[in-house]
Computed example of a mutant assay.
Amino acid sequence: MERIYLTLNKIIEALLVIIFGLLVIDVVWQVLSRYVVGQSSSFTEEFARFSLIWLTVLGAAHINGSREGHLSMDFLLSKLPEEKQVKRKKVIQILMALFALIIMVIGGGNLVYITLSLGQISSALQIPLGFVYAIVPVSGLIIIFFSIYNIKKLNF
Score class of each variant (00 low, 15 high):
71 L>A: 10
35 Y>V: 07
144 I>T: 02
68 E>V: 13
45 E>G: 13
8 L>V: 00
71 L>E: 01
130 G>C: 07
142 I>M: 09
79 K>E: 03
1 M>H: 07
33 S>W: 03
15 L>V: 08
135 I>Y: 07
119 G>P: 00
13 E>H: 13
85 Q>I: 02
43 F>Q: 08
16 L>P: 03
73 M>I: 12
7 T>A: 15
119 G>W: 05
48 A>R: 00
4 I>G: 00
72 S>M: 14
28 V>C: 07
12 I>R: 03
150 N>A: 13
84 K>S: 08
59 G>T: 05
137 P>L: 04
96 M>R: 09
114 I>F: 05
21 G>V: 14
95 L>H: 12
109 G>A: 11
10 K>C: 14
61 A>W: 00
144 I>R: 01
113 Y>N: 02
84 K>Y: 13
143 I>H: 01
75 F>S: 12
65 G>F: 04
153 K>N: 07
80 L>A: 06
113 Y>V: 11
55 L>W: 03
112 V>F: 00
56 T>N: 13
44 T>P: 15
99 F>E: 02
35 Y>A: 09
129 L>F: 12
74 D>Y: 05
49 R>W: 11
72 S>C: 15
60 A>Y: 08
60 A>W: 01
32 L>S: 15
6 L>T: 10
81 P>D: 12
47 F>T: 05
63 I>M: 06
13 E>K: 14
30 Q>S: 15
143 I>K: 04
43 F>H: 12
13 E>A: 15
139 S>Q: 04
94 I>P: 07
141 L>P: 04
110 N>K: 06
108 G>Y: 01
138 V>A: 01
123 S>E: 08
57 V>P: 03
120 Q>S: 11
29 W>T: 14
146 F>E: 06
69 G>E: 04
94 I>E: 07
112 V>E: 00
135 I>R: 06
4 I>N: 00
28 V>K: 02
84 K>F: 08
142 I>E: 08
20 F>Y: 01
27 V>W: 04
31 V>M: 11
135 I>M: 05
108 G>L: 07
75 F>G: 02
2 E>Y: 12
126 Q>A: 15
33 S>H: 05
80 L>I: 03
69 G>H: 10
122 S>I: 09
118 L>D: 02
122 S>E: 03
77 L>F: 13
134 A>P: 02
122 S>H: 07
28 V>S: 06
81 P>H: 15
80 L>F: 05
38 G>N: 08
134 A>G: 13
97 A>N: 13
117 S>Q: 05
86 V>Q: 00
111 L>P: 00
27 V>L: 14
29 W>G: 15
55 L>F: 09
138 V>W: 00
86 V>A: 08
22 L>W: 01
138 V>F: 01
110 N>T: 09
154 L>F: 12
61 A>M: 04
60 A>F: 08
143 I>F: 06
133 Y>W: 08
77 L>S: 06
43 F>P: 10
58 L>F: 05
84 K>L: 12
85 Q>K: 08
111 L>G: 03
27 V>F: 11
98 L>T: 06
68 E>F: 09
33 S>K: 02
12 I>H: 03
85 Q>S: 05
34 R>A: 14
59 G>L: 04
116 L>K: 01
2 E>R: 14
119 G>R: 12
127 I>Y: 11
69 G>V: 15
92 I>W: 04
42 S>K: 09
101 L>A: 02
114 I>N: 02
101 L>Q: 01
45 E>T: 12
124 A>E: 10
55 L>S: 10
127 I>A: 14
